[in-house]
Amino acid sequence: MSNLQQSYNAGQTKGQAHEKAEQWTESAKETAHSARDKTANAAQSTKESAQHGQQQASGFIQQTGESVKNMAQGAVDGVKNTLGINEKK
Rank of each mutant, 00 (worst) to 15 (best):
M1S: 05
Q5H: 10
Q6Y: 07
Q6H: 07
S7Y: 00
Y8H: 08
N9F: 14
N9H: 07
A10N: 05
A10I: 06
G11L: 04
G11W: 03
G11P: 01
G11C: 02
Q12Y: 05
T13V: 04
G15D: 15
Q16W: 12
A17S: 09
H18Q: 15
H18R: 14
E19N: 04
E19K: 04
K20V: 03
K20S: 03
A21V: 00
A21H: 01
Q23W: 03
W24R: 06
E26K: 15
E26Q: 14
E26S: 11
S27A: 12
S27W: 13
A28R: 09
A28M: 07
E30G: 04
E30K: 14
T31N: 13
T31Q: 15
T31D: 13
A32S: 11
H33L: 02
H33I: 01
S34V: 07
R36G: 02
K38V: 07
K38T: 10
T39D: 01
T39A: 12
N41V: 04
N41T: 03
A43R: 08
A43N: 08
Q44R: 08
S45P: 00
T46F: 09
K47W: 15
E48H: 09
S49H: 06
A50Y: 11
A50M: 12
A50G: 03
Q51P: 00
Q51N: 07
Q51W: 05
H52F: 10
H52P: 00
G53Y: 07
Q54I: 07
Q55G: 11
A57R: 05
S58W: 13
G59K: 10
F60T: 03
I61H: 11
I61V: 11
I61E: 10
Q62M: 09
Q62K: 15
Q63N: 11
Q63D: 10
G65E: 05
G65T: 07
E66P: 01
E66Y: 10
E66V: 14
S67W: 09
N70L: 09
N70G: 01
N70W: 11
M71T: 09
M71S: 12
M71L: 14
M71G: 07
M71V: 11
A72H: 10
G74Q: 06
G74D: 06
A75H: 12
A75G: 11
A75F: 14
A75Y: 13
A75I: 14
A75V: 12
A75L: 15
V76P: 04
V76K: 10
V76C: 03
D77H: 09
G78W: 14
G78S: 13
N81Y: 03
N81D: 11
T82W: 01
T82M: 12
L83N: 05
G84F: 01
N86L: 04
K88I: 08
K88H: 04
K88T: 08
K88Y: 00
K89Q: 12
K89T: 12
K89E: 13
